[in-house]
């Protein structure tokens, strides 16, 4: 199993901050497409993905237990 985390606008749109889902074997790009389709989230495309709190490239494979977070463009400071 994996945890899928959403923040800011994506969290508002999905309506949840966390979803438990099996993403093992998928690439980052596939997870993005899945979320985009499932939640009709065009903005998912603009988000960066962090796996276990580190930014990941689009071809990175999700492993069992990985925490996958959608990081929309940040605006701290």
């Amino acid at each position: 199993m994996n945890q899928l985390l959403f923040f800011a606008e994506l969290q508002d749109r999905v309506g949840k901050e966390r979803i438990d889902i099996d993403l093992e074997g998928k690439t980052v790009q596939q997870v993005k497409e899945y979320v985009e389709d499932t939640y009709e989230l065009h903005k998912a495309k603009e988000a960066m993905i962090a796996i276990n709190e580190e930014f990941a490239s689009r071809d990175t494979l999700i492993k069992k237990g990985d925490v996958v977070a959608f990081i929309p463009p940040v605006s701290g400071g």
């Binding site: 923040f7 800011a8 606008e9 508002d12 603009e46 962090a50 930014f55 977070a69 990081i71 929309p72 463009p73 940040v74 605006s75 701290g76 400071g77």
Partner: peptide, 20 residues
């Protein structure tokens, strides 16, 4: 690179800000 976001609240709505 720091995952922090701000939401601006106005008289007529609110929006998460990104893309700065």
């Amino acid at each position: 690179i720091v995952p922090i976001w701000k939401k601006e609240h106005w008289h007529d709505g609110a929006k998460w800000i990104g893309d700065q």
